[in-house]
Nucleic acid binder design. Structure first.
Lengths: 204, 204
DNA sequence: GCGGTTTAATACTGGTCGTTATGAAAAACT
DNA sequence: AGTTTTTCATAACGACCAGTATTAAACCGC
């Protein structure tokens, strides 16, 4: 019973997500958020809680709406295809929206005041979870002979993640999609070749 | 004539530099800065100007004091050695100080409020200048036959920079030096080989 | 040692931050 | 229709932000 909410919570969350994507957690003020959402301040508090809870909801939604290519990639048959799909889709996402380039996770809170420490750690945890999934996928690939015996799945996963993070930084700096695709090409050009695929070329 | 300054400007600048390194431009408050410097607020204004000017001085000092390996690297004989030196020295710098891990340029201002836009652009410009130097060095390497005719110096430079930025993000997240060195190893494992060095191994 | 000049320390400014109290408007239940 | 409950909009809260006015202390030349 009682009055109904006059705004669509998910639509508002999408608008807030874009603000955080562009300005990061601390850089986004409630003035920015209310303007983008078209909703007054107390409504945001009643719908989501405080700013940190709001950001975490936006982060969840970000992975649901935009990071669908991660599970997609993990299901591809070879480690190389997994990496390629991750990298190319990431380039697309990082450059698709000119007004909020890059990645919410990286833009969100790389460094900042002590008050945002918990948010920073949350972002780190999410990245670490993704990297762990990737490492496990590469371990499987190694067991399947898709990656050579000398391959180090943890280093390979960290390498792919480094490219992803580095390109997010570059996208935020205005790098073109073409340039970032060339970076991906370069990154993939040295992919290790396993026993089951020794016919693959060594350099793209 | 008049009273002498009681503090060493360069020592203070080093202390401020470390605060920015850890918290970034917007995340560092004057409360943080004065505490780290052991100097009161008006003294910082009289010595450096406002916060932005202060940050730019700190950034200059950062490159002078800690980024000496960049010109070092550019003078090495082969493109691969240039890249290797950049990457390994960067890992060392990013993990040398546990209380301010990563890179000042990346931590400084990746995203934030509109007021820090000029600072963000300044950091982007500095990175672009470094990348341009690297590209030119790779163009020379290509002309010398050190890189193959098919090599794209701009993509190669962007690739190396992406690894550098990505590792800076990872270092800030607490990655160990060993892990990052493994990332560098992976990044270098597929380095293109030119006609003058066809005897080099294709995979590490 | 005395006047002129620069630095040092304290305290304050207007503005913005995240958060919340308050009272009016609107919907559902009795 | 009347009552209750929830949402809405305005406006306020204390805290902190970057930046500064003010006054006392230290140094110089004389």
């Amino acid at each position: 019973m009682g009055r109904h909410r006059e705004f669509d919570v998910e639509k508002v969350l999408d608008a807030l997500l874009c603000v955080f994507w562009r300005k990061g957690y601390e850089g986004a003020s409630y003035a920015d958020l209310t303007e983008a959402a078209g909703v007054e301040r107390p409504a945001l508090y009643s719908a989501f809680g405080n700013k940190e809870a709001l950001f975490r909801r936006a982060l969840d939604r970000y992975y649901e709406r935009y990071m669908g290519f991660i599970p997609e990639a993990l299901q591809l048959p070879t480690a190389r295809e997994v990496a390629a799909h991750l990298l190319y889709c990431s380039v697309d996402l990082n450059t698709r929206f000119p007004d909020h380039a890059g990645c919410l996770n990286i833009n969100g809170a790389l460094a900042g005041s002590d008050e945002s420490e918990t948010v920073r750690q949350a972002l780190i945890d999410v990245r670490a979870a993704g990297e762990a999934q990737l490492r496990e996928r590469f371990e499987r690939a190694k067991a399947e002979g898709d990656l050579p015996e000398t391959a180090k799945p943890d280093a390979l996963a960290a390498f792919v993640m480094a490219i992803l993070h580095g390109m997010a930084v570059q996208a935020k700096a205005g790098f073109s999609r073409e340039m970032l695709n060339a970076v991906v090409e370069q990154a993939l050009s040295t992919w290790p070749v396993g026993a089951s695929r020794t016919t693959a070329t060594a350099k793209a």
